[in-house]
Amino acid sequence: MTCPEIRKLLDLSFGMSGPDPALEEHLNRCAECRGYWLRLTRLADEMPDDTQYSFDDAAIESMIDNVEEVIESRRVTEKSSGRSFRDYSYRNLMRLMPSAAALVLVVGVGVGGYFWGRSVPQVIEPSGYSAIVDPFVMDRELYDEPDEPTYDVLVSRFAGERPYDASETLLGDITEEEFNYLSESFHVGDIL
């Protein structure tokens, strides 16, 4: 290690009883670094110790009394409120409350939205298109692609356009001979 690197490490030992033992070998053979360390040691010795910053006894007593008073007043509050400032199960629970509320809100919105979507009235029109009634605009709009008309839809449309029994009318118009020919040659569904 070079001298500047050694001095960086000596800085870190400032205030300690001695330098890092690994540096002692270098200090024994390098007068400059040894002088550097001695100056640091002298400075550390000059530093006022902890007691120089202590408050006098009266001030200390007053502070102690204040701490006791605050803790005691909190204990009284604990007793009257039924909860403890030191009860960490309660405090941790309180800390989790915002997250829990947010989770409930998200799940609530999700589930509510799903069921609301399912409860919107859906009307199948005779045309075969399904229409959804929008409860907010109170208007009918088509949202879906047209469905393929089913057999039932076709029959109901056919019947709706003709206010008479189509099959009877058709059969009534032909002779027995024609009817026999038709029933032998074609399937009933084909005729319709």
């Binding site: 902890d50 007691t51 910053y53 202590s54 408050f55 001030a59 200390i60 502070m63 102690i64 701490v67 006791e68 803790i71």
Partner: peptide, 14 residues
């Protein structure tokens, strides 16, 4: 705890 406060107040306030 009161004993701790008494013993440590000086150091902590410093």
């Amino acid at each position: 705890f009161s004993q701790i406060v008494r013993q440590m107040m000086s150091k902590v306030s410093a």
